[in-house]
Amino acid sequence: MKKSFRPYLAFLFMGSLLSFSACKDKDDPEPDHEHDVVTTVTLTLTPTNGGQAITATWEDLDGPGGTAPQIDKLVLRANTTYTGSLTFASEEAHGDHTDTHDLTADIREEGTAHEIFYFANPQGLVTITKTDKDANGRPIGLETTAATTAAGQGKLRIVLKHQPGTKSSTSNENTGETDVDITFDTSVQ
């Protein structure tokens, strides 16, 4: 009698565990988002001789794959010099609203481990010169001047490299880890 009763006791124990565990199924995942992943890059170009500032945004809220990114076209005037500034942000859509976390300040703060590279194709379509410096006197590339000459069509590629410990006088766009590698269709009119 006692012998055969014991397994039932044990099964009861197992059963109670299951029901106890099942009650815990309440929490739902928060909207998924990593605050450190760049989703949005904005290039702002202000003509030095006054006039309307131009902004171009490259945005991919759902990361690689999925929905295609939204990419603005960059339209510049010929024979003009601009003051450029580049910002990076991590944005997330929460259904009814969007939260934005600016990452530009972090990159500036860790300037000795970051560098931005600009490549115009064809070369000379727009000439970009980095004007900001990190603590070691090396360029960062968040602040620039951009100069155009003749009208033309092409592309501007912007690459943000994370180069912890490897940024040096010889480092280049092949050094380190790529955080951002984007291209704007560019037109100089």
Binding site: V37, D60, G63, P64, G65, V180
Partner: peptide
């Protein structure tokens, strides 16, 4: 897969 960091 294309993303903001380039091609993966």
């Amino acid at each position: 897969a294309l993303g903001i960091g380039g091609a993966y």
